[in-house]
Amino acid sequence: MLDVFIFATLNGLVTGLLLFMLASGLTLIFSMMGVLNFAHASFYMLGAYFAYSISLYFGFWTGLIFAPLIVGVLGAFVERYGLRRVHQAGHVAELVFTFGLAFLIEEAVQFFWGPGTKNYQQPELLDFPLFTLFGQEFPAYRGFMIGISITIFIGLYYLLTRSRIGIIIQAAITHPKTVANLGHNVPLIFMGVFGVGTALAGVAGVIAGPVLTTFPGMAVVLGSIVFVIVVIGGLGSLAGAFIASLLIGLLQSYAIASDVGVPDLLNLLGLEFARDHPLTDLWTMTLPQIAPILPFLLLVLVLIFRPTGLLGKREQ
């Protein structure tokens, strides 16, 4: 039992931190521009694909460095020549733009890399068990994922709260005109943050690609959950996104690792249903089966009981 709990916690941590890498960029971009970037997970997918292609020639580590850089530059380009122009037409136009961009990137990925799954492998250097506990091995690559996610989280935290550029970003989010009047180029700052946000999504793609498989639907799979996270955490709240990411990562991991379901609950209540009952599927449902929909159930609960999200502020 303890071994299941420990490994479920570690796996939940891996998923949660990975989700945070995506959610942090999305949250930063939302805070500044007031628009949810529907194409954000597509940059995550691009990170995985660029890293796959680079790794074929130069190895995994070169991909880890250059793929996020390429994705970041691409993201900055999209902000400068796409979103900034569309911004004048309002938030609806921005949403439609990012929505269209997501489709465009998915089609482009299929066009250039094909519809199939890519054989993107984790590096041989990390292909060993980090430790063995209760007879179960914990892969070093997953430890690496935790390490890189925490490093980025700490780096981002210090960048935003301790550095001069972080202070300018914080101020530009709430008072862009005042910051511009002090001589800071706010559009350039926004472009930079958009680039860094998409680069973070790219890093997530690079390290998740070998584990979660690299295929053209990977953006759709994770994209919807990332939106759930930013809403649960509270739109625009980085700390909220962090808590929500870990919450969902752990929730899903515990659900998958658990061995309980409706039959156990019914047994506990002393109830029993016939095998040929029309609702048999419902009576025999297990927690691992419903794990994928748990984030959405949590979203519904949060929207009912705390519509602003865990750490979100009520709009004035």
Binding site: K177, A180, N181, L182, G183, H184, N185, V186
Partner: peptide
Amino acid sequence: KKSFEIAN
């Protein structure tokens, strides 16, 4: 000119 340019 833009505000930040004028400030600078």
